[in-house]
Computed example of a mutant assay.
Amino acid sequence: MKRQLDALAKHGLAAGDAVRPQRADWTIDQGWADYTAADHTTWRTLFERQRRLLPGRACDEFLQGMRDLPIAADRIPDFLELSDVLKGRTGWQVVAVPGLVPDEVFFDHLANRRFPAGNFIRRPDQLDYLEEPDVFHDVFGHVPMLVNPVIADYLQAYGEGGLRAQRLGTLAQLARVYWYTIEFGLLRQADGLRLYGAGIASSFSETTFSLDDPSPNRVRFDLERVMRTQYRIDDFQETYFVIDGFEQLLELARIDFGPLYDHVRGQPEFAPGDVLPDDTVLHRGTGRHHQPG
């Protein structure tokens, strides 16, 4: 779990030059025909166990996205087939990359409505433990939400904002917004808390931990609070931030982050498990999972 979270902390970034592809945008052919029977079996194992867990835990929009896309248990999805549907719905496409890509490449893809997805799948002995996000995390976890127009707009705005944050030297603050929404975000639906973050939706253990375990805090999302909050890359999150609806993310997509960067620069940061006096706490966690021993 730790090494997978280490990679997610870069949120699709910074592979370095060692695996640089020939194309400047780091895209490669998915090579769908090269997947083995064992690869498809690994996909099926991961898919089936998440499909049993997610009803009643994933938000309605995630489940609808799964129904609308050619994603099934029997085989690893074909990125061209996924893109055909997405282009007609929200203008997005899925492009294959060899793994983590440099910051500017990642942001440029998002800004142009291209979602970079690893084309490889983990080994059978890595079902809960891998070094970097694979096709299951990227496609099963992320792509269903790209059918939703709000998430589609939000991710494009995030890509544009990432390019700006690089220039301003504020990428760490913006990355926390991505981490606590797109990767590990929770949503308050009319019928209860639901997950929408890909890091949760693609994780067998974190799916239940994030919603059912008494250990983590569940706190109403506040943008400045999130920008100042560190996160765990070695374990489950100590705090999950909860939005009231996807319209809240659409509002974030329209915000000028420049004044916010100026405001939070130099201010104290918060530890992952901190609960602040001004927080709207939906659940005060016991913290037991992260206690030593």
Results as ranks from 00 to 15, higher is better:
262 D>Q: 15
245 G>V: 02
233 I>L: 07
49 R>K: 14
200 I>M: 00
236 F>N: 04
98 P>Y: 14
183 E>T: 07
280 T>I: 13
245 G>D: 12
14 A>T: 11
10 K>D: 07
126 Q>P: 11
231 Y>W: 09
187 L>P: 04
168 L>I: 10
248 Q>R: 13
284 R>H: 15
170 T>M: 15
278 D>W: 07
262 D>N: 14
19 V>I: 14
263 H>G: 10
52 R>K: 13
153 D>I: 05
167 R>Y: 06
166 Q>V: 06
23 R>Y: 05
126 Q>W: 07
196 Y>N: 05
278 D>G: 11
250 L>H: 15
167 R>G: 07
88 G>H: 13
144 P>S: 04
97 V>W: 00
230 Q>C: 09
182 I>H: 01
146 L>D: 04
243 I>G: 04
286 T>P: 05
240 Y>A: 01
59 C>Q: 03
24 A>K: 10
250 L>N: 13
62 F>C: 07
52 R>S: 11
158 Y>T: 09
253 A>H: 14
115 F>E: 03
151 I>D: 01
213 D>C: 13
4 Q>L: 13
187 L>E: 04
192 G>V: 04
212 D>N: 10
241 F>W: 11
238 E>F: 04
57 R>H: 07
263 H>V: 10
280 T>C: 12
58 A>I: 03
42 T>A: 02
281 V>Q: 05
157 A>P: 09
122 R>H: 08
86 L>F: 02
196 Y>Q: 05
262 D>W: 11
165 A>Q: 03
231 Y>V: 03
75 R>V: 09
93 Q>F: 06
66 M>F: 08
197 G>A: 08
95 V>E: 01
48 E>A: 04
104 E>H: 15
159 G>N: 10
227 M>E: 07
234 D>T: 12
219 V>C: 08
186 L>G: 01
269 E>H: 13
37 A>K: 13
159 G>H: 12
59 C>V: 00
209 F>K: 03
24 A>G: 11
163 L>K: 11
187 L>H: 06
208 T>D: 15
226 V>W: 07
242 V>L: 06
59 C>D: 02
31 G>D: 09
2 K>T: 15
128 D>F: 05
160 E>L: 12
54 L>N: 00
86 L>P: 00
132 E>F: 06
16 G>A: 10
66 M>V: 14
207 T>W: 00
132 E>I: 08
39 D>W: 02
263 H>Q: 13
83 S>D: 06
41 T>Y: 13
194 R>F: 01
240 Y>K: 05
246 F>Y: 15
40 H>V: 10
174 L>T: 00
276 L>W: 10
199 G>I: 02
